[in-house]
Design a protein around this nucleic acid. Structure first.
Length: 354
DNA sequence: AAAGCGTGCAACCGCGTTTCA
DNA sequence: CTGAAACGCGGTTGCACGCTT
């Protein structure tokens, strides 16, 4: 619908508010409230349109508005909420006391969006970027790493830098490749994957643990930022996406399954031990049946993905995990989840493993 | 020192929705 | 019921500020 501005409104003052105008507006609203924004400017002695007054009040002058830097928790919350609500800034703002929709929107556009993009996450879909330019950049990174290694094999500093760069490139590339390849998809992308995969294998790696053969920890930065691990295998994010992470209290002590191959851990009711607890390839998806209607302990970022009902997650438990190969630490919040009968197919259909 | 450039954010604009006479 | 006015929301703009060249 909309309404074209009347002649009077064109005359209103625009631009930044002066302290004097702020004082007039605040004084007036404290004394009289703001029943009619349209009538307010005249009554308050302001040469501003009602809309401008409303915006100034609700975004800046209203008591209780929190100014300043967003905390890490607030940032996480914004990202989580955005993954569910999209650009519904006013709805997001209702979950952040003291923050306005405008402030959250600005923070998203100037900080978070950029941060996610640099981390390789599409800020719109909240899934890893799989666009060709990104893959091309990674390809260049790998090439650079190769060149650095070849240029000066005896120079320790250069070698360390090249190794670090190669490691980074591998992690990013492998992560993206897996997402693209899991797509089951597009024949045009597959040859590119193979080419990049070969590049990946060709990068020299002086570590005794060849990264390519290691089991990757989930991208901790991504997980901590998003609260869940996104997956690009479908148009909409899948309800589940198992990671290789494990609860620190759990040791995989049976069936000769290497701990790093276990993807999902189940606590026996009334016991701290685990059994029949792994899902590490397609055949193991059958084991899902054993999980039905029993508590399953999985990372909360799995269970808290957008489609799931958050109420199903019990006993949140945040633990710090150390990646032994990189000595890096990251926090994962675990939760107990009761799978329902009708969720079996979701698990088996969406399960994607290395 | 100054021009150019990038960044962050307050404020504006346009349009959809709700309210009310 | 209808249409104008008011409100609310999301996208965009423009300016101040800081950094780089």
């Amino acid at each position: 619908m909309g309404r074209s501005p009347s002649r009077d409104e064109i005359e209103w003052k625009k631009g930044p508010w002066t302290p004097e105008e702020d004082r007039k507006l605040t004084d007036y609203i404290h004394k009289n409230g703001h029943r009619s924004w349209r009538a307010l400017p005249k009554l308050a002695g302001l040469n501003r349109c009602g809309k401008s007054c409303r915006l100034r009040w609700s975004n800046y002058l209203k008591p209780g508005i929190k100014r300043g830097k967003f905390s890490a928790d607030e940032e996480k919350l914004i990202i989580s909420l955005h993954s569910v609500l999209g650009n519904k800034w006013s709805q997001i703002a209702t979950h952040l006391p003291g923050r306005t929709d405008n402030e959250i929107k600005n923070y998203w556009n100037t900080h978070i969006k950029k941060k996610l993009f640099q981390t390789g996450i599409d800020p719109i879909t909240h899934r890893p970027r799989t666009d060709l330019s990104l893959l091309a950049n990674l390809s260049n990174l790998l090439l650079a790493a190769n060149i650095l290694n070849l240029m000066n094999p005896l120079d320790n500093a250069t070698r360390i830098q090249a190794d670090a760069q190669a490691q980074l490139a591998k992690i990013q590339l492998l992560s993206n490749l897996l997402q693209v390849m899991n797509n089951g998809s597009s024949s045009s992308i597959q040859p590119l994957n193979m080419e990049l995969l070969n590049q990946l294998r060709s990068v020299p790696n002086r570590d005794t643990n060849n990264l390519f053969n290691q089991h990757l920890e989930p991208n901790s930065q991504l997980v901590n930022t998003l609260g869940y691990l996104p997956n690009s295998s479908s148009q909409t994010p899948p309800p589940y996406n198992f990671s290789t992470s494990k609860h620190p209290d759990v040791t995989n002590d049976n069936e000769n399954i290497p701990a790093e191959d276990a993807d999902c851990y189940r606590f026996e009711q009334g016991s701290s031990s685990i059994s029949n607890n792994y899902l590490n390839d397609d055949d193991d998806t059958m084991n899902v049946q054993h999980y039905l209607n029993t508590p399953v302990y999985i990372p909360a970022f799995v269970s808290a993905s957008p489609e799931r009902n958050m109420n199903n997650i019990n006993k949140p438990d945040t633990r710090t995990t150390t990646n032994s190969s990189t000595s890096s630490t990251f926090e994962t919040t675990w939760g107990e989840l009761n799978l329902q009968d009708d969720e079996e197919n979701i698990l088996t259909d969406k399960w994607t493993g290395l």
